[in-house]
Amino acid sequence: MTDILPPDEIAADTIAEESLQASERDVPGLGLAVGSRAKRLLRSILIAIPLIALVVWTVTPFLVTLSISFKDKVEVFSDPSLIPANPSLNAYTDVLASDSFTTSFTNSVVVGVGTTVLTILLAVPAAYAFARFRFRGRHLLLLFTLLPRLTPSIGLMIPIYRIAIATNMLDKRITLIIVYTAMLLPLGVWLLVGFFQAIPRDIEEAANVDGASLWGRLRHIVVPLAAPAMITVGVLAFREAWNEFTLVLVLVNSPGNRTLPFELYKLQGVEGIADYPIEAAFTVLTIVPFILFYTFVEKHVVAGLISGSGK
């Protein structure tokens, strides 16, 4: 389906198109201009409706949760409006004062930062090797990219749980860091390989001639040039650690080691009647730190994702 038209017809079409544009431009007259303005208005409305739908689809759950989080436990049922009649921060102060939030927040930060650092530390050299060297095992890269698809967490839950018991690694934050790093490494390496290959070899060879060592080149050429990709990988790793739920559910027992998603999951079951404002406030407080962190680097992440998915 790539060649729809033979070349000579394309040439004919470009001429036709040019004449079409010319004829459009040349037509004066008030009636036509108004018509085209109405048409343009209709057109922009037709474009706007799906975009508004997209915003509504994405934002409504956030807005509703935000609204509930500012209400009182009883008000949730009595005051159905989106904007609370008398908003209060009680739910937030309650959540922020609770041990369960502060502990799990700390754990999430520790696990998140640990995963990010470890992922970058391991992914950069591996990606550099895959991108720059021809060596036995280079074809492992393909397997590397496919492995995560073949090993979803549903297949990992039981084995990793049993292995963690056998090796006495259950209920430790370091276990979470290592597991999440392993889950993110294939994607991270793959993204970085593409980026490293785009760095011209000549720069490095010139530096090599000038006497730069391997470490010197990595530090002063490769890493600075690949910084956007590394930030992308870092954010993706942090997101994985921050949001992952099913593995932390089985790898952690004691309340002191839970991460935020696990704690939020537990929060729903503990009280007999659901305290919606508390749940909502907790949810908002798990999302907002990441949004702050994310808006800071959003540009890099989306660019990285698009270039990754477009491949």
């Binding site: 949760t65 739920f245 998603p261 696990f262 939020l264 798990t286």
Partner: peptide, 8 residues
């Protein structure tokens, strides 16, 4: 996270 989406 999946849990936060579920709550929402």
């Amino acid at each position: 996270s999946n849990v936060a989406a579920a709550v929402m």
